[in-house]
Amino acid sequence: MRGTTMAIEPTLAILSGKGGTGKTLVSVNLASVAKKATYIDCDVEEPNGNLFFNPTKEFGKLVTVKKPVVDDALCDGCHICVDFCAFNALALIGNRLMIFDDICHSCGGCLHVCPQKALSEQESPVGEMSIGQSGTVRSISGYMNIGESSGVPIIAELLKHKDDGLTIIDAPPGSSCLVTESVRLSDFCILIAEPTIFGSHNLAMVYSLVSLLGKPCAVVLNKTMEGGNPSEEFCIKNSIPIIGRIPFDKKLGSLNSVGKIVAREDEHYHEVFSSILKKALEEVRS
């Protein structure tokens, strides 16, 4: 190690176009078969990675965002902030400024443009996050408060705690802003797909997102069965590498449904996920 710095290991993001395809299954198991890994559960609307890891709780904090508040005595109703706000979170009726917190994206622009310095910011809680350990896995997880409109600030907070070791990001389903934020720091994306026509449409959607973001990717086919697989056909047509196939298997389903990490319980599945991780890391390096 003399004179060298520690190598930065890759960050792999696990995505799918819809819920229930196996993102958490793959994420949790990939993190578990690595020598050492950090798992980040970015599905802050429905985090369930910790149901599998059941980690120790070593760190926890509230996640807050800044929302503008107006001093009515200073506001002269000039309308500049209302015209400036790209999200239409402000309205001015008479000389009274109305602030719609749910619409506000906490950009702080209104404070900046106000000639009267009538606006200030106040911290507003939107959720919480925690870090814990489960065997060789450091698990980082966030939770969005019920009724909040965006989990993006919570995901941004989770990503601040990422280190230089191997990191597995369990992304939210779909191709929304939440997903874009989740994969921002990833070196490589693994797309999980089901063997149905619906599954192939969801795969196409998320493939289009990662292509747009310029992220290299590969596919893991989940719940594979005898017969045709529209998701596999999509991969062949678009020359997307397939780095794993997880069969539709009752044993896997039973273990997973009671919160067991299959790679820790079953040697065969330890092999299956080790092989997926190995292939993913080869793809990253190629």
Partner: peptide, 18 residues
């Protein structure tokens, strides 16, 4: 001008009418 806002269209439209 609020018609194609990504969000808050109703707030902006109401402001325009006011």
């Amino acid at each position: 001008s609020a018609a194609d806002s990504p969000g808050g269209a109703g707030i902006k439209a109401a402001q325009i009418l006011v």
